[in-house]
Design a binder for these strands. Structure first.
Lengths: 140, 140
DNA sequence: GTTCGTGCAAACGATTTGCATTACT
DNA sequence: AGTAATGCAAATCGTTTGCACGAAC
């Protein structure tokens, strides 16, 4: 979680990519707000770079294996750091809050799937919907 | 899973909705192909109804609680019957094919989550992305 | 001096919506 | 008759792309 803009830029350099003003700003934005759910649009409003440039930079960072994106429900794709562990969520249908999916349960699932089907889930962000403990208690 | 077009139409009737030619055809199409991954576009090509009508009908069926949709990766939303068990999928990032998530692994996950957090996942369709056995074999 | 990256605008696919017409009930 | 549903086209949203210009190496 201690990622800096420099780390991201180094990833680009090591791929032989040019370091531009736009990329510096985008990387700084990602480093600064990586705890949030970043979207191309929200990054673009925070920097002086066209939205297409943001998309292109995110694509490059994704190819470099340093960021990933996933689609949650409708809205825009959400981008996050590839090594960010906290990306499996339980989202409550009633109160809307998200809590982390226990790592042990998640890993057991992944292991079970791979053993049974040969399919290897990527470490991508994914979310399950349902009812949280509190909301279940508060009602029938 | 022995759903018929009549069942779907009855759901509409019970909501006070009118039975039109388009809706009959759409319901027949859904009943006939509910085992597949239905999209608005694929339904629309199979019936004499405009795509917007298909969307509107799917919306109504969804409000009636008889169908659900989910977004798998990029492409269009996938619609399926709400009471259909095969909702949990493994979608390959490379070849795009979806296979079922083993029920046992899924149930173990749900049990683990509930035991540890009190959260109860709903039975909604959800998908994990990754690489299928074949695609993993076909490359590094 | 190349090549790559950028902005812009236009293209795109999926979905939604406004509106006049048609058809259920 | 009255209201809801349809088709069509245009609008929308997120994302991608073509292209000419400008900047990094």
């Amino acid at each position: 979680m201690h990622i800096t803009a420099e780390t991201l830029l180094d990833a680009l350099r090591s791929q032989g990519m040019r370091i531009t003003d736009a990329r510096v700003q985008i990387c700084e934005e990602i480093a600064a707000r990586h705890a949030e759910h970043l979207t191309a649009a929200s990054i673009s409003t925070g920097v002086e770079a066209n939205e297409s440039t943001v998309y292109r930079t995110l694509e490059v960072l994704e190819e470099a294996g340093i960021v990933e994106h996933s689609h949650m429900g409708h809205g825009p794709a959400v981008y996050h750091l590839a090594d960010d562990a906290e990306h499996h969520h339980l989202v409550c249908e009633r109160c809307g809050r998200a809590e982390a999916l226990p790592a042990a349960a998640y890993e057991a699932l992944v292991a079970g799937i791979t053993a049974e089907t040969g399919f290897v889930p990527s470490s991508r962000h994914f979310a399950m919907t349902g009812l949280c403990k509190e909301c279940r208690a508060t009602n029938a």
